[in-house]
């Protein structure tokens, strides 16, 4: 179900913080100080993603998209503004609860896969489950469906360095999916892949989206962004919606 979200950008409308929105931000600001210079990376960002949406955030490097992604991913906090994830006011959370929010609500997919090189594929995939306190064997059982779906079942004993880029990214996707998160957050998921593998990954995203997953993908590539239902442009910290 493709639900295009009209951007009314009414940050003032408080009635909208219901659970229809996976993401809702109000007036996010973030400033970095580099030397004596103050860099205003995010300027009054109001951004919403409804449940089940597949949104691409498109912007050149230095546009502030990585900062936005870190804030959405609960790995960084804004200087000011509000951020609701699944209705939870993230801006009010302490670091400890952010840990568990990242663990349960968000599945991360990175450009460089960020798999742990010493762990096998299956060990990498089940990490989020282990952190919830699920025991190893149960976690393996729980993740087998996801692993099968991504066509990795014959690779589970392998190490990351034995896989191709596309396979590694599928492992990363499996790890993101296994915890059944509210949001899949992908940062340049095709950036390190060749064109063919990249296409496959994007197809996979479409498929996952059809299965009901909410996806936010950050990219600088216009072609990649076009796979999403909706594109949000970010330039110099300002968000513009198509």
């Amino acid at each position: 179900m493709k639900l295009f979200k009209e951007n009314e950008s009414d940050a003032t409308d408080n009635s909208v913080k219901n659970t229809d929105y996976t993401i809702k931000t109000e007036g996010l600001n973030k400033t970095y100080t580099v030397g004596n210079e103050k860099l205003n990376v995010l300027k009054n960002v109001n951004f919403e993603v409804k449940k089940g949406e597949f949104v691409a955030i498109l912007g050149p490097s230095g546009s502030g998209k990585s900062t936005l992604m870190n804030i959405i991913g609960c790995m960084d906090v804004a200087d000011s503004g509000k951020y609701y994830l699944d209705g939870i006011p993230i801006h009010e959370q302490k670091e400890k609860s952010l840990n568990s929010i990242r663990n349960t609500k968000i599945g991360f997919i990175f450009q460089n896969y960020h798999l742990v090189p010493t762990y096998t594929i299956v060990q990498n995939v089940i990490m989020p489950l282990l952190m919830r306190g699920i025991s190893y064997n149960d976690a393996v059982k729980m993740s087998m469906d996801t692993i099968n779906m991504l066509g990795l079942s014959d690779r589970i004993k392998h190490k990351p360095h034995e896989l191709s880029g596309g396979q590694k990214q599928r492992v990363a996707i499996a790890r993101a999916l296994v915890g059944d998160p509210s949001l899949l957050l992908a940062d340049e998921p095709t950036g390190a892949l060749d064109r063919e593998s990249g296409k496959e990954v994007l197809k996979l995203f479409n498929k996952l989206n059809e299965m009901g997953n909410t996806i936010v993908m950050i990219t600088h590539d216009h072609h990649v962004a076009e796979h999403a239902q909706r594109i949000v442009n970010i330039i110099d910290g300002n968000l513009t919606v198509n």
Binding site: S100, F110, T118
Partner: peptide, 11 residues
Amino acid sequence: EIGILKAIGCT
């Protein structure tokens, strides 16, 4: 490794 573990919720 530490970064990714923390990103996915390691305390």
